[in-house]
């Protein structure tokens, strides 16, 4: 790299506003058109978890989900942003119901001919274990709402990091029409720690960060076509990419409906032979995306 280019890159770096360092509320605000942010069920509505205090855990006043209505290029939109710092972004009864309920209302509006553009900012370990079965139940409701809503408008998911998106919410991400990630993002069903614990350290050493990212990191997911956009940690770029994703309209076939493609791909995999991130990139290179 020339000295001039290096300086330019450094300036760009300094000029960038980190999305990852923002809280959920700021993230939602950063996605929506300037001045259009209107929060629903905010902190002063005090819809807290009824289950955490029973277990001696202090509850947050918004249960870790920020819902905001506003506009994207002037069109009505909904952003649901998960606060990863509170309880690891886990889905409890209230936080999950906020997302499911908002998507259900967006669906109602779509059915009445008033499209609402839905954006999910997914930073979550999945079910909140202290609310176990109610977390699982509401995640199923989120899945149901995404599948129903997706028939009207694209549902756009963003995973920026650093928590990533895991558990039942990784299915929610996979159901999104388009997924935007950064290099810091991870997307997987079982967290590395859980795999190490359940299948042994020989299966996966969760402390090996390079290995973990080579399997489920944003760059890898992008390279094999499991997500649609790979961006730097830049709030402006992410907000622009969300708008582009909506401008592209509904995908010809949702990724979670590409049954023949993925069954064919799996049939070509020999589970007896080792496979790593680069190996899969070679197999699935130029992943077909309609």
């Amino acid at each position: 790299m020339s000295a001039v280019a290096a300086v330019r890159e450094h300036r760009q770096f300094l000029g960038r506003t980190s999305f990852i360092e923002m809280g959920a509320r700021e993230r939602a605000r950063a996605i929506l058109d300037a001045g259009s942010f209107r929060e629903l069920l905010g902190p002063f509505d005090r819809l807290k978890s009824p289950w955490l205090p029973l277990q001696g855990i202090v509850a947050q006043s918004d249960d870790g989900v920020v819902l905001a209505r506003g506009t994207l290029d002037g069109r009505p939109a909904l952003v649901a942003a998960i606060e990863s710092i509170y309880q690891g972004g886990s889905m409890g009864e209230v936080s999950g119901a906020k997302i499911a309920g908002a998507l259900e209302l967006a669906l109602r509006d779509c059915e009445q001919g008033k499209p609402v553009l839905p954006v999910l900012l997914l930073e979550t370990g999945g079910v909140r274990l202290q609310e176990a079965n109610l977390g699982l139940a509401v995640i199923a409701e989120i899945h149901a709402a995404i599948v129903a809503l997706r028939r009207h408008v694209p549902v756009i998911g963003v995973i920026s990091g650093m928590v990533g998106c895991f558990g039942g919410m990784s299915l929610a991400a996979a159901l999104c029409s388009r997924l935007i990630v950064t290099r810091q993002a991870r997307l997987g069903m079982n967290g590395p720690e859980v795999i190490e614990q359940e299948a042994g350290i020989a299966e996966l050493d969760a402390s090996d960060r390079a290995l973990v990212w080579s399997l489920i990191g944003g760059e890898q997911r992008y390279a094999v076509g499991l997500v649609d956009e790979l961006l730097e940690d830049d709030a402006v770029a992410i907000a622009a990419s969300v708008r582009t994703a909506f401008a592209q309209g509904l995908p010809r076939q949702e990724r979670s409906a590409q049954v023949d493609l993925y069954l064919e791909r799996l049939a070509a995999i020999d589970p007896q032979r080792p496979l790593d991130g680069p190996g899969l990139r070679a197999l699935w290179h130029g992943a077909a995306r309609s």
Binding site: H143, A174, Y262
Partner: peptide, 14 residues
């Protein structure tokens, strides 16, 4: 994880 079990499960739910 590498091969996207999250997507496989989502495909069934879908």
């Amino acid at each position: 994880e590498l091969l996207g079990v999250h997507l496989a499960c989502a495909a069934a739910a879908d």
